[in-house]
Amino acid sequence: TEEFVRLWREAVRHNQTLHWNGTDFIPGDEWAEEFARREEEKL
């Protein structure tokens, strides 16, 4: 979602874990980066 992408970019900028829907998205984590890339492509 647009909100997820916005929060993810913020988390990456501050190198912080994003807690989203009970899942931890960690900047630099391969799975999280791939998920975020797919979400961005949907926008």
Rank of each mutant, 00 (worst) to 15 (best):
R13A: 15
A32V: 03
N15W: 10
F35Y: 14
T1Y: 12
G28H: 03
L18P: 00
V12N: 04
L18D: 00
E3Q: 10
E34Y: 08
R6V: 07
V12S: 06
E41T: 11
F25M: 07
E40L: 14
P27G: 02
T17H: 05
T23F: 15
D29K: 04
Q16D: 05
E33Y: 05
L43V: 07
L18E: 00
W8F: 02
T1I: 14
L7N: 05
W20F: 10
D29N: 11
F35P: 00
E40T: 11
L43H: 06
W31Y: 08
A11T: 02
T17R: 08
W8T: 00
E34S: 11
T17N: 05
F25A: 00
H14Q: 15
T1M: 14
V5H: 05
R37Q: 07
V12F: 04
T1E: 08
W31P: 03
H19K: 10
G28C: 08
Q16F: 13
Q16R: 14
L43Q: 06
V5L: 15
E33C: 11
L43D: 04
F25T: 01
L43W: 10
I26K: 13
K42R: 12
H14G: 10
R38Y: 07
V12R: 09
L43R: 05
L18H: 01
R13P: 00
N15T: 05
K42E: 04
R13V: 11
L18R: 00
T1S: 14
R9T: 06
A11M: 03
E33L: 07
R38C: 13
A36K: 02
A32Q: 02
W20I: 05
E10H: 09
R38A: 11
A32W: 04
W20V: 03
I26E: 09
T23Q: 15
E2T: 10
R38D: 04
N21Y: 12
A11E: 00
E40R: 07
A36S: 04
L7I: 03
N21K: 14
F25R: 01
I26C: 11
E3G: 07
F4I: 00
H19F: 08
G22Y: 04
E34L: 10
A11D: 00
E39G: 05
E30M: 12
D29T: 11
V12Y: 05
E10G: 01
K42S: 08
Q16E: 11
D24N: 10
T23I: 15
K42Q: 07
R37L: 08
E39T: 15
R38K: 13
N15C: 12
A36E: 01
W31E: 07
W8K: 00
R9N: 09
E10S: 04
T23A: 12
A32P: 02
E10K: 07
T1K: 07
E3N: 10
A36L: 05
P27F: 03
R37E: 04
E30T: 13
I26T: 15
E3R: 08
N15E: 05
A36W: 07
R13L: 15
P27Y: 02
V5K: 03
Q16G: 05
A11K: 02
F4K: 00
E40I: 15
I26F: 09
E41A: 14
D29H: 08
W20A: 01
E10Y: 10
L7F: 05
E2L: 14
E30F: 12
N21G: 11
D29E: 12
Q16V: 14
W8N: 00
R6K: 11
W8Q: 01
N21W: 11
G22F: 06
I26P: 05
H14W: 12
W20N: 00
R9K: 13
L7A: 12
E40S: 10
T1D: 11
E34A: 14
G28S: 04
T1Q: 09
G22V: 02
E33D: 07
T17G: 05
W20G: 01
E39C: 15
D24W: 13
D24M: 11
E3M: 11
V12M: 08
E30G: 10
T17I: 15
L7Y: 05
W20T: 01
R38L: 11
T1P: 14
W20E: 00
E30K: 14
W8L: 02
R13M: 14
H19M: 06
E33T: 07
V5G: 02
R37W: 04
G22T: 02
N15V: 04
T23H: 14
W31G: 05
E10L: 11
T1W: 14
E10F: 08
E2N: 10
F4N: 00
Q16A: 11
E30R: 13
F35K: 03
F35L: 04
F25V: 01
T23D: 07
V12G: 01
R9L: 11
E33W: 07
F35G: 00
L7D: 02
E2R: 14
I26Y: 09
E10P: 01
E40P: 04
W8Y: 02
E40Q: 12
E33R: 06
R13D: 08
E34N: 12
E41W: 12
D24F: 12
G22E: 05
E2Q: 13
E40W: 13
E3V: 10
E41S: 12
W8M: 02
T17D: 01
H19W: 08
E3L: 12
L43A: 06
E2P: 09
E40K: 07
A32Y: 03
F25Q: 00
E33G: 04
E39D: 02
F4G: 00
E39I: 15
E40H: 09
L18W: 02
E34F: 07
A32H: 02
G28W: 03
K42L: 08
V5W: 09
K42T: 06
E34I: 08
E40Y: 13
E30D: 12
A11V: 02
E2F: 12
D29Y: 04
W31D: 06
F25W: 04
H14I: 13
A32N: 01
E10W: 13
F35C: 09
E30A: 15
A32M: 03
E3C: 15
Q16H: 11
W31K: 08
E40V: 13
N15Y: 06
E41R: 13
E39L: 15
W8I: 01
R6L: 10
E10C: 14
R9Y: 12
